[in-house]
């Protein structure tokens, strides 16, 4: 086959696939959010979405969860990644254990933490065993919004730190050891080496990790469903409810468009904040 056209033939299936099942459907979502079934442009769906009583709470909860979870995950992942880079014996085992949540679905993670926070769960049993309570506490009841929020937070931190960890470990692996050794020779202490050498060189990985993680955080859904049911509305849950329970795909699409918009906005923001100047890359 002609080597000039061969790459295009190889690329064609993926390209077609992405156009038909990615670009086109997303344009449909956008269209559904801003046009009626008859094809008339309208803002009525967006307005109805924004004026619905659960809208503010869903948006706030989603953003709050992201703001609470992502910084903790980033610090935790950085800590774990640096620890891994210092390990010799047992490195493989520890890494395997720490990356296990990577393969666990958000729903399963929700169920795992349900086993802990449920009324008959392990937390209540433990507290009882320690003599701190006499009656089981309903951590996940509608009157305990804060504990639901904390439970979801913990489940999210537990589940999705691994993805950042893997990206950061891979990123640290790409940084030649000589840079750190050079900094040490010039008298930089551990903390200085971390903040002045490792972190700046890790920027591309941090960028990827944050973009991926923040977008996933906006998609939070199954964990919340498992732990909070309808007591903690989030954006993705609203999409699901409007699509299914309320059978209004226009409003569902409006929510989808909103999630899409904040995802893209945050992606651009993170990429802008963590830009590596041209020519300053390691490889």
């Amino acid at each position: 086959m002609n080597p000039r056209t061969l790459p295009y033939w190889l690329l064609a299936p993926a390209l077609v696939f992405l156009c038909v099942f990615f670009l086109y459907p997303f344009s449909l979502v956008a269209w559904q959010a801003i046009a009626t079934d008859e094809g008339v442009l309208t803002t009525q769906y967006l307005q109805r979405m924004a004026s619905h009583w659960k809208f503010d709470r869903a948006l706030t909860n989603t953003l709050l969860l992201t703001a609470a979870v992502v910084p903790i995950q980033l610090s935790l992942a950085l800590l774990m990644a640096t620890m891994v880079s210092k390990m010799n014996r047992g490195r493989d085992v520890v890494l395997y254990i720490w990356t296990i949540p990577l393969g666990i679905s958000d729903l399963a993670a929700g169920l795992i933490w349900l086993a802990i926070f449920d009324q008959t769960g392990f937390l209540n049993s433990a507290l009882f065993g320690l003599g701190m309570i006499e009656q089981p506490v309903t951590f996940l009841g509608y009157q305990n919004k804060t504990t639901i929020f904390v439970a979801v937070m913990l489940a999210e931190i537990w589940r999705a730190t691994a993805i950042m960890l893997v990206i950061l470990v891979a990123g640290i692996g790409l940084i030649p050891k000589e840079y750190n050794e050079a900094a040490e020779v010039f008298g930089a202490g551990r903390w200085k080496r971390f903040t002045k050498v490792t972190l700046p060189l890790l920027k591309p990985s941090l960028q990827t990790a944050l973009v991926l993680r923040v977008i996933l955080a906006f998609e939070v859904f199954a964990v919340v469903s498992a732990l909070g049911g309808t007591n903690l509305p989030v954006l993705m849950g609203e999409v699901y409810d409007w699509q299914f329970k309320l059978q209004d795909s226009h409003i569902a699409a409006s929510y989808a468009l909103l999630i899409l918009a904040i995802s893209i906005a945050f992606t651009l923001l993170i990429m802008g904040l963590l830009r590596t100047p041209k020519g300053a890359q390691t490889t």
């Binding site: 992405l18 459907p25 973009v211 991926l212 569902a252 995802s263 893209i264």
Partner: peptide
């Protein structure tokens, strides 16, 4: 860019239009 762009999109949302299609 197209491939990387998919990362900035909440892909499960694809289910909505696909349901109709």
């Amino acid at each position: 860019v197209l491939v990387l762009m998919t990362r900035a999109f909440p892909l499960p949302l694809l289910a909505l239009p696909m349901a109709i299609l």
